[in-house]
Lab assay of single mutants.
Amino acid sequence: WLKDDEATHCRQCEKEFSISRRKHHCRNCGHIFCNTCSSNELALPSYPKPVRVCDSCHTL
Rank of each mutant, 00 (worst) to 15 (best):
K3G: 03
C34H: 03
K49S: 10
C54F: 04
F33C: 13
S39G: 14
C13A: 00
C29T: 01
C10R: 01
E41F: 06
N40A: 08
D5Y: 06
L2P: 00
C13N: 01
I32T: 12
P48R: 05
F17K: 02
S38N: 01
C13H: 00
E6R: 05
F17A: 00
H24F: 05
T8Q: 12
I19M: 12
E16I: 11
E14S: 08
W1N: 15
V53F: 02
C10E: 02
E16S: 08
Q12A: 08
F33W: 03
R22D: 09
C57R: 02
R27Y: 14
C37W: 02
K23W: 06
Q12R: 05
I32R: 12
L42P: 02
C37E: 02
E14H: 09
R21S: 05
P48K: 08
S39Q: 13
H24K: 07
S56I: 14
H24C: 09
H24E: 13
N28Y: 06
C37Q: 03
L60S: 10
C37V: 02
A43M: 12
H31S: 07
K49T: 07
G30Y: 03
P45K: 13
P50D: 06
C54R: 06
S38G: 10
H58M: 09
P48A: 08
E6F: 06
Q12K: 03
E14P: 00
H31I: 09
E16G: 08
L2M: 10
N40I: 07
S38P: 01
D4Y: 08
C26H: 02
F33E: 02
L2Y: 13
C57F: 01
D5G: 04
C26Y: 01
P45C: 05
C26P: 03
K3D: 03
C29W: 00
C10F: 01
S38R: 09
N28V: 06
H25R: 14
C29D: 01
L60A: 13
K23F: 05
K23G: 11
H24A: 06
S39P: 06
T36G: 15
T8S: 11
T59N: 10
S18V: 06
C13F: 01
H9E: 04
L42D: 14
K15Q: 10
S56W: 12
R22C: 03
C10T: 01
F33H: 03
H25S: 13
E16R: 04
N35E: 15
S20C: 04
C13D: 00
S56P: 15
C13R: 01
L44F: 07
R27D: 13
D5S: 07
L60V: 07
C10S: 00
A43V: 12
R27I: 10
Y47R: 05
K15H: 10
H25Y: 14
N40F: 04
C26W: 01
N40T: 10
K23T: 07
N40S: 12
C57Y: 01
H31Y: 09
L44H: 05
H58S: 08
F33V: 13
F33Y: 12
H58Y: 10
S56L: 14
C26N: 04
S20E: 14
S46E: 15
A7V: 09
E41K: 11
P48N: 05
I32H: 06
L44R: 03
H9G: 07
H9S: 09
S20V: 11
S38A: 14
T59P: 06
R27L: 13
E41Q: 11
I32E: 13
T36P: 14
G30Q: 05
N28P: 06
C10N: 01
P45N: 12
S56V: 15
S20K: 11
Y47E: 10
K23N: 03
L60D: 15
F17S: 01
D4H: 07
N28F: 08
P48E: 14
E14L: 04
S56T: 15
T8F: 05
A7E: 12
H31Q: 11
R21P: 03
F33M: 04
F17Y: 01
L44V: 07
T8M: 12
S38L: 07
P50S: 06
C34G: 02
E14W: 06
W1V: 12
C57H: 00
S39N: 11
N28R: 08
E16C: 06
K23H: 05
C29F: 00
C10V: 01
S46K: 14
H31L: 11
C57W: 02
P50V: 10
C37I: 01
A43W: 04
L42V: 13
P45A: 06
C29S: 00
Q12T: 03
E6H: 08
E41N: 08
L2N: 12
R22V: 12
S46Y: 07
N28W: 09
S38K: 02
L60N: 09
P50C: 09
N28L: 05
S38Q: 04
H25C: 08
Y47I: 07
K23V: 06
W1L: 11
R22G: 08
C34F: 00
T8V: 06
Y47N: 12
L44Q: 05
F33D: 02
C54I: 00
L42W: 11
I32P: 14
G30D: 04
T8L: 12
H58F: 09
N40Q: 12
Q12V: 07
P50L: 10
G30T: 01
Y47H: 13
Y47F: 11
K15Y: 07
H58L: 09
R11I: 13
H24G: 03
L42A: 14
S38W: 06
L44D: 14
C26L: 01
S18G: 11
L44N: 04
C34A: 02
H9V: 07
E16Q: 05
F33P: 00
S39C: 00
S20A: 13
Y47D: 12
A7C: 10
T36D: 15
L60Q: 14
K23L: 04
H31R: 09
C57Q: 04
C37P: 03
A43Q: 12
S56C: 12
C13G: 02
N35G: 15
R27H: 15
H25F: 11
I32K: 14
R11V: 08
R11Y: 14
S18W: 05
I32C: 09
S20H: 09
D4W: 02
N35P: 15
Q12F: 03
G30I: 02
